[in-house]
Simulated assay, not measured.
Amino acid sequence: MDKTIRVVAALIRDDAGRVLLVRKRGTAAFMQPGGKRDGGEDDVTALARELDEELGCRLIPGSARPLGQFDAVAANEPGWRVEAAVYAIDVDGPIAPKAEIDEMLWIDPAAPPDIHLAPLTRDHVVPLATGAGRAVGGQ
């Protein structure tokens, strides 16, 4: 059995260069907004839907820039891995936790606070956001 969860994830920055992280209800790890694709969805369509459902904001059309495919231990599913297509995107509208999102915060990727980060976020996305990671291809 393939124990890989395939998702799309968004790297969203504010005007100060901070990165948006979310924490899902009943979990401890902060991670990028995003989620699983529904049947027939491409990555950008899935991201747009997830952002609307989770945060109430809108992905600005044409703003999605692929950063790569990355693999990490799943934060909330013991024994599983997550494979994420990560995109830098721009959003419009107010951002607030909805649906399964309990908390959101903006972090300085060069000096992340002492919080529990999902392995994908810690090992791949934060380094990308600081310019220390590999931008395309990942892994």
Rank of each mutant, 00 (worst) to 15 (best):
D114S: 06
H124N: 08
A85G: 12
A132E: 14
G93H: 08
I115T: 08
E77A: 15
D102H: 09
A99V: 00
I101Q: 03
A74D: 15
G131F: 12
P109I: 13
V91A: 04
A84K: 06
A64D: 00
V73W: 10
P127T: 05
I115R: 14
A85W: 02
A129F: 01
T130Y: 02
Q69D: 14
A64I: 02
H116R: 14
A64S: 02
H116I: 13
W80G: 03
Q69M: 11
P112G: 10
A96L: 04
A75T: 00
H116K: 13
V73E: 15
I107S: 08
A85L: 09
A96N: 04
P78M: 12
I101N: 05
G79Q: 12
D108W: 00
E103D: 13
I107G: 10
D114Q: 08
W80A: 06
P66D: 03
A88F: 01
P127E: 11
A111V: 12
A99N: 14
E100C: 00
P97D: 03
D71T: 08
A111P: 09
V126N: 04
P94F: 10
A111W: 08
D114K: 11
T130G: 05
P119M: 08
D102F: 04
D92E: 10
A96S: 10
A96W: 03
A88M: 07
E103I: 01
R65N: 03
W80E: 04
A74E: 14
E83P: 00
D71H: 14
A74V: 02
K98V: 01
S63D: 03
I95H: 03
R122S: 03
I89V: 15
E103F: 02
G93W: 06
N76H: 15
F70N: 03
T121D: 13
A96G: 04
A75V: 00
A88S: 13
Q69F: 12
N76I: 13
D114P: 05
T121I: 07
V86P: 06
P66H: 07
E83D: 10
V91Q: 05
L120Y: 07
P78G: 08
D90E: 15
V82I: 15
V82D: 09
P97W: 00
D92M: 00
W106P: 05
A84G: 04
E83V: 11
V82E: 15
A99P: 04
G68N: 07
G133I: 11
V86S: 09
I107H: 11
I101D: 05
G131C: 11
D108E: 07
V73F: 09
P78W: 14
A75L: 09
P66T: 03
P113N: 09
I89P: 09
D108K: 02
K98I: 00
H116Q: 14
N76C: 10
N76P: 05
D92S: 07
D108Q: 02
F70L: 02
P109D: 13
D92F: 01
A85M: 13
A74T: 04
E103G: 03
T121A: 14
G131A: 12
G131K: 07
E100Q: 05
P97L: 05
A118W: 13
A99M: 07
K98P: 00
E83K: 10
G68F: 02
T121P: 11
